[in-house]
C-alpha cells in the first residue's frame, strides 16, 4: 500500500465538518493526488457529535473501509473533547488541530496525551470576528494548512473562494479569507 494520509474531523451537526472535509479534499487534490472524502452518516441532528474523513494519497485509493487510525485529527468544537474520545485509534505521532481558546499545553492535559503534535487555534473567536457567525470550519482549514503543510494557505484561499463564491455574499467570502489568514497566524504548536 502506498503512503496515505488519513484525517478525521470531529464536529457538531451544523458546524460544517463535512463541508470542511470536502473543502480540504478539493484544495489538496491538485493534478496528481487521489482523494477520498466521506462523512459518517448516523442519526445526527444539529449539535450532535459528527465525524468526517479524508484520505489523501499519491496513488489511487482502493479501500472503502472506515478510517480507524488517523494521522491527523481536527476538532471543530472544544466541548467535543469531553463528549467523545477524539484520540481514539490515533498513532503516537498523530497531529491534533483543535479549536480552543486554551494553548497546546492545556489541551494536551485535557486529552491526556504527551506524544505527537498538538496545535490550537481560537477558531470560534476568529470566526465571530471575521465571518460574524459561529462557523469554525474555514478557520480550522487555515490552521490545518499552516500546521500540516499539506496545502498552501494561498491555494486554500483560492479554492475556498471558488467553492463558496457562488453560494455566499462577497463580504462573507472576504470574511472567510480573513479567517484563513488569521488562523494561519494565530495557530499555536506545542
Amino acid at each position: 500500500m502506498a503512503q496515505m494520509t488519513e484525517i478525521r474531523w470531529h464536529g457538531r451537526g451544523g458546524q460544517g465538518a463535512k463541508t470542511a472535509a470536502y473543502l480540504l479534499a478539493e484544495a489538496v487534490m491538485g493534478d496528481d493526488a487521489y482523494i477520498q472524502a466521506f462523512p459518517e452518516y448516523g442519526p445526527e441532528r444539529m449539535g450532535a457529535p459528527v465525524r468526517a474523513f479524508v484520505r489523501i494519497s499519491k496513488t489511487p485509493i482502493r479501500m472503502h473501509c472506515p478510517v480507524l487510525s488517523p494521522d491527523i485529527v481536527v476538532v471543530l468544537d472544544p466541548t467535543l473533547m469531553k463528549a467523545v474520545d477524539v484520540t481514539e485509534g490515533v498513532p503516537e505521532d498523530a497531529v491534533f488541530i483543535i479549536n480552543s481558546t486554551e494553548g497546546p499545553a492545556e489541551v494536551r492535559q485535557q486529552l491526556g496525551i504527551n506524544t505527537g503534535r498538538v496545535y490550537t487555534v481560537p477558531a470560534l473567536k476568529i470566526a465571530m470576528e471575521t465571518i460574524k457567525r459561529p462557523i469554525p470550519n474555514t478557520v480550522m482549514l487555515g490552521a490545518f494548512a499552516k500546521a500540516t503543510g499539506l496545502l498552501d494557505v494561498d491555494a486554500l484561499k483560492e479554492r475556498v473562494r471558488a467553492q463558496l463564491g457562488s453560494k455566499l455574499r462577497p463580504d462573507v467570502i472576504q470574511g472567510n479569507m480573513d479567517a484563513i489568514d488569521r488562523a494561519a497566524q494565530e495557530v499555536q504548536e506545542g
Binding site: 487534490m29 482523494i35 477520498q36 472524502a37 466521506f38 462523512p39 452518516y41 489511487p60
Partner: peptide, 12 residues
C-alpha cells in the same frame, strides 16, 4: 453501487 460508502463519498 454501495449506498453511502460510494453514493456519499467524494472520490477523484
Amino acid at each position: 453501487y454501495d449506498g453511502f460508502v460510494i453514493s456519499h463519498a467524494r472520490e477523484v
